[in-house]
Design a protein around this nucleic acid. Structure first.
Lengths: 345, 345
DNA sequence: CTGTTAGCGCATTCAT
DNA sequence: ATGAATGCGCTAACAG
């Protein structure tokens, strides 16, 4: 790899001049500029960002930690954040925490060592104290929580309006005449999942329906586990709800697998609405009614807030910025109205 | 952010000693080590990788360029590469080229400026000369092509055994009694797609079936475009093939949408096999027979080769390493045997 | 074992 | 408008 010095030598100028044409920090005459540019091409010179960063103590890099980017929701967030970052000439490095608290700690530490200028965090499904997060914040590193919101943490955040979104889905099922609606969730240690559960209860309350404890099924983010839970609960036809609401994509997948395994058809045997799109929901037969989150937009907004905080520097640190975006309900077949023998109400 | 000097001062030792406990390059007495570690914790010190990299001219970072990580196939590759990298204490930065040649050039350039030590490249669907790639290689930067293989380029590569995989799928359709099988591909400028087409032809040839030009439908990587193409071709029932083979995930999605729009059911009206899993193929009703690529493994192997090349340094550069992994056929409903009125054979 | 020091490549004063 | 010199934080070579 050639250095700025080699470029300067080849162009017959000083390294200062090369630096000026590179960064545009000072005007350079047409003549020298042309020579320098020729030398750069000749040598296939690529400015060393490492050295530049050391000098300027700016890396123009953002980090984003997601639990697992093979879950389709996260890449969409990442791409949103990436494009917002690129607009401001930043790059984005994305890493996976595997839902592991330890790994998340290591990654936070790694990103700090790499001197990213800000971090977008989709927190893993861990509870407990957020020492690591607080430390990072205390050090003045801007950080924005995305989607998953750690409890009791004064921090900027961008997420969907969870409660309202869940309410939307459940109200729809109620409107379709379902008298008994169960909910299958992810880990209730996560605030999102709690809020979605709240939305579910809210919808029932508004409709004057009882919220029965035995219809709240706490699951996790593993489709197979959720499938097992649902199979277990759905087996007994006498105590089966008329519809099921899933609060996240893996849970939704698990529920669908359970339906298949139990020989249940939607919407005839059981109504179904799920959070998060599976990217191909429209192709399922029957197609799946889904609460669609604006994932790309979430990424964009989060990155924009982060960049704003970076620009502000250490002064602007007043109130946390809290953005809540609306989800939309994509109504498809799985929640269609079906004439029912009047069930227990 | 505190520096090594502050740690040294607080611990009452020299900065050299701190460096030694950090890197383990030289032994340090229990006493001083303890003091240093205390100071590190006290200051929440995070070694500056930027400075370290500048000094050692090693970033311990790999880059991977994919066309679009919202396509489920790519995150799986990335995670494979990430875990292989991590085993060797490297980090991985993943970026999207959007299938754009210009963007791919910029990213290659950016990664070089960031001094990544090696690059995994899933080339965009661009033809033309590979100046940029060659330049990077010439500069001594190790590079491994993944999945998409640029033509006429002597370079390490990891991909699936495309021809054999396609042959597997088509032979299966033939075995299920399909007399007339169409194929819908991505851009045939890509070697993969060509090879898959070859496999299709090979399977027909071995079965003594004719390869008819009008049953080779060249598409692209946009599901909607492919859907339009398929709708167009499938409309006329007299000239409709008895089965369709799709060579990539977006094409497969497009085909499924076209089936839906044309009111065709699989496997009764048309047999169907597609390349790449959609992550939820098993949930479709009917479920979709799929050629499953070992995406994670592809990522792992590619990263391992890259790391090996990095270790070799500039000497080892002999033959390109070419890894071709086998795909497997996941037989599901969409290709099930169906009694047919004998069609034109 | 521990301390001192040179220099990685660059942006940026400060002179000129 | 251009060039010379300084130092960002760290590792590694060397001296003690």
């Amino acid at each position: 790899m050639s250095t700025i010095k080699e470029v300067a030598d080849l162009a017959g100028v000083s390294i200062g001049t090369v630096s000026h044409v590179l960064t545009g920090s000072l005007p350079v005459s047409q003549q020298l500029r042309a020579k320098v540019e020729a030398a750069i091409r000749e040598l296939d010179y690529h400015p060393n960002h490492v050295a530049r960063s050391l000098k300027t103590s700016k890396t123009r890099t953002l980090g984003i930690i997601v639990p697992d980017m093979t879950i389709p929701f996260f890449p969409r967030i990442i791409r949103g954040a990436e494009s917002a970052a690129r607009r401001s000439n930043y790059s984005l490095v994305a890493v996976n925490s595997d839902e592991s608290g330890a790994r998340q700690r290591d990654l936070l530490s790694l990103l700090r060592s790499q001197r990213v200028e800000g971090i977008l965090l989709v927190a893993g499904a861990v509870s407990g104290p957020h020492d690591q997060i607080n430390q990072a914040m205390d050090s003045g590193l801007p950080m924005v929580c995305v989607d998953r919101l750690p409890e009791k943490l004064e921090i900027d955040s961008v997420a969907v309006e969870n409660s309202a979104a869940a309410e939307l889905g459940v109200a729809h099922l109620i409107a379709m005449g379902h008298p008994s609606i169960a909910i299958v969730t992810g880990p209730l240690t996560l605030r999102n999942e709690q809020e979605r559960l709240q939305g579910y209860k809210q919808a029932l309350r508004k409709a004057g329906l009882p919220a029965r404890e035995e219809w709240i099924w706490e699951g996790n983010f593993h489709a197979e586990d959720v499938a097992a839970i649902c199979r277990d609960r759905l087996r007994d036809s006498s105590e089966r709800p008329s519809a099921l609401f899933a609060t996240n994509a893996p849970a939704g997948l698990g529920a669908l697998r359970a339906f298949r395994d139990c020989g249940l058809r939607t919407p005839q045997d059981i109504g179904f609405v799920t959070f998060d799109e599976l990217t191909v929901d429209d192709l399922f037969t029957p197609s799946v009614t889904t609460i669609v989150q604006p994932a790309h937009e979430i990424g964009v907004r989060a990155a924009e807030i982060l960049l704003q905080r970076i620009e502000e520097g250490r002064h602007g640190k007043k109130e946390p910025i809290t953005v809540r975006l609306a989800a939309t309900l994509q109504i498809r077949d799985s929640s269609r109205f079906v004439e029912r023998a009047s069930s227990a109400r």
